[in-house]
Design a binder for these strands. Sequence first.
DNA 1: ACTTATGATTGCGA
DNA 2: TCGCAATCATAAGT
Length: 433
Amino acid sequence: MDEQPRLMHSHAGVGMAGHPGLSQHMEGTGGTDGDGRKQDIGDILQQIMTITDQSLDEAQARKHALNCHRMKPALFNVLCEIKEKTVLSIRGAQEEEPPDAQLMRLDNMLLAEGVSGPEKGGGSAAAAAAAAASGGGAGADNSAEHSDYRAKLSQIRQIYHTELEKYEQACNEFTTHVMNLLREQSRTRPISPKEIERMVGIIHRKFSSIQMQLKQSTCEAVMILRSRFLDARRKRRNFNKQATEILNEYFYSHLSNPYPSEEAKEELAKKCSITVSQVQYSVSNWFGNKRIRYKKNIGKFQEEANMYAAKTAVNATNVSSHGSQANSPSTPNSAGSAGSFNMSNSGDLFMSVQSLNGDSYQGAQVGANVQSQVDTLRHVISQTGGYSEGLTASQMYSPQGINANGGWQDATTPSSVTSPTEGPGSVHSDTSN
DNA sequence: ACTTATGATTGCGA
DNA sequence: TCGCAATCATAAGT
């Protein structure tokens, strides 16, 4: 009916619908009587109601008209400026995040663990240690243990990278999408390029925080893996027979001074192809344990001592033709050191042995070096008949003899720790565990 | 199941 | 920091 024209009139040329009518209505209330007022209100209500009835086309047309208005660009710029000065500047102030130390830490750790960084590095400390350990002989369980760790690590690595890629892709997609949307909208509402930029920044920040979460959980996973690995390391594993033999050979051939140097230990570890889980301190542990247990109960170890003495002797005689005197404590247990024995020395050595057995030798430091040779040689003597057959190895390696000789047990406490009568001496709880 | 052997850990002193 | 001594914890043997 007649509503349409009226509506058109009330809206003419003004963006905000209803205000003119409203003001009109206010004026009306001021003056006339109740009837007129009612009429006004009815009009206004009508107008308001009909706004929603506008067709979409109409609205579009209006919008277009607005866009084409000659003042539009200027107005747009002004609005953008105002917006920039108010909202964005306020927000900008609080968005300055500090350089993230935690992220740096995470990155560093991932790099160190070989999760990020160059491909196939496997650069974790554990892996590196393992690699170093396997350098010599590559024990069976060594590589098994190690490869298990490596496999898990690379699994984590893979997941990490695919996730990271996914996030990056999603971030890019989302950013372009938002940018397009904002560009589109910037035609109709005040959005400056700067604001778009800012929005992109916000998106990137959001995604990088997600990335950080990923990094964090990756780190956690690596830590768990590592701790498991280390737990496995803590778990006791006996040395294999060969390793024990090598260590024992060294021990008994250096009975007077069974303190291998760092290099010697390293070499022994290599020779024993000790597992990853054992490499770090085990040689030291082994010698520590051996010394203490030997000392505590020499009797128990006599047989073993004899055995290794004989063994070393055999080695010695086998290599005896090779008469070089390679008296290096760091390359000791090898047959070569046994080979150091030569007949011209035997007299002196014999004397040494005698004095050692004679309980008088208190293991002076000077003597210790010589002793490392002597120990090896004593069994050679016994083997080659330097002593009478009656004087068996068991005698040679009698507790007293050893006790007296090296002085390594009681070099610090020369007084009778292990008196002959006490035999194995004050055996402590260890054996009766 | 119990005992023994043995590698690892801890606390201490030099 | 090293070695010793005591102790723990587990593998291996019975």
